[in-house]
Nucleic acid binder design. Structure first.
Lengths: 153, 153
DNA sequence: CGAGTGAGTTGGATTTCCGAACCCACTAAG
DNA sequence: CTTAGTGGGTTCGGAAATCCAACTCACTCG
């Protein structure tokens, strides 16, 4: 039986879930937009990097911008859609900081404009409360994909 | 290549960035904890599913729990660490909803305990403001990994 | 001229993925 | 008892993706 659950998570991952794609987005968001920087900083083999970049440009997450004529050289800048993946990267980083970096050492610290170290948190836009797994219910819009009604714990 | 940027994002992805891993986490978070459900709902081939599950159990994101002696049957429940990836899943879903679902159709809608449809948002824990890419500065803790000082736009 | 750089491309070995088939332990039906 | 079905995997061989090194091309710099 061949129809996985229809889901925006799955579709987003189909786009940016391949190896290195999110690391590329991380790099361009940090300002490393050139081929060699991307190859070095992500660790991606150059041929893989080429195909990832093409994919991300086609999907509208990056745009190729010429920064030199002779020789012709391009850099890869994040679009609005690309930058909109920032929250995903933040939460991945946050999870790694909490669960992987023993001793509390974090290889990178972000500072928010308010002057404090950024500790990102997901909240409900409506009530501003932090979102807990236990406080969620799901309503699949596609029939046949209910699992247990309320999100199980 | 040799030494990619040390980063919690990369390390987290090394753990859960393989194909299907995050979909498995999605499913167990929704309450679909058994092998066949996972195979159906994620679309993962059974052998791939087996290796993913082993990996996630070893990493402490899932735990194997017996739910029947005869025959011996196990289900895979998310641990606290596993559930802590929820925010990542939420932001992936949110991005897909905004950028992939033309016509505004969403295959799944989550409801928050406050009574409203959940629209997840990442905020700074300190000041409560929504985090924008433009309002971040990064301080790499590991020498040699500065790119442009302030996060570029 | 020769060395170096940035941005890829090419070729071949290795690894991973996939689908289908198979196995095992049981349960339920005839 | 025999047969069918189910849940949870394992085992195949082939297809696809990945990796790495080496190579190209178009310049620039000393």
């Amino acid at each position: 039986m061949k129809d996985p659950r229809p889901c925006s998570i799955a579709e987003t991952l189909a786009l940016v879930g391949e190896k290195y794609s999110l690391l590329i987005l991380r790099e361009v968001s940090l300002g490393a937009t050139r081929f060699d920087q991307l190859a070095r900083n992500t660790g991606a083999p150059r041929d893989v990097l080429t195909t990832r970049l093409k994919r991300l440009v086609d999907a509208g997450l990056l745009e190729k911008a010429e920064y030199s004529d002779r020789p012709r050289r391009y850099e890869y800048r994040p679009t609005r859609a690309g930058l909109d993946l920032g929250p995903v990267l933040l939460m991945l980083m946050s999870w790694g900081d909490r669960h992987l970096q023993e001793g509390g050492f974090r290889p990178m610290v972000l500072e928010h404009a308010c002057g404090h170290e950024l500790v990102p948190q997901v909240v409900c836009r409506e009530c501003g409360e932090r979102v807990e797994h236990e406080s969620l219910t799901h309503h699949p819009q596609v029939p046949g994909w209910t699992v247990t009604g309320p999100v199980a714990g």
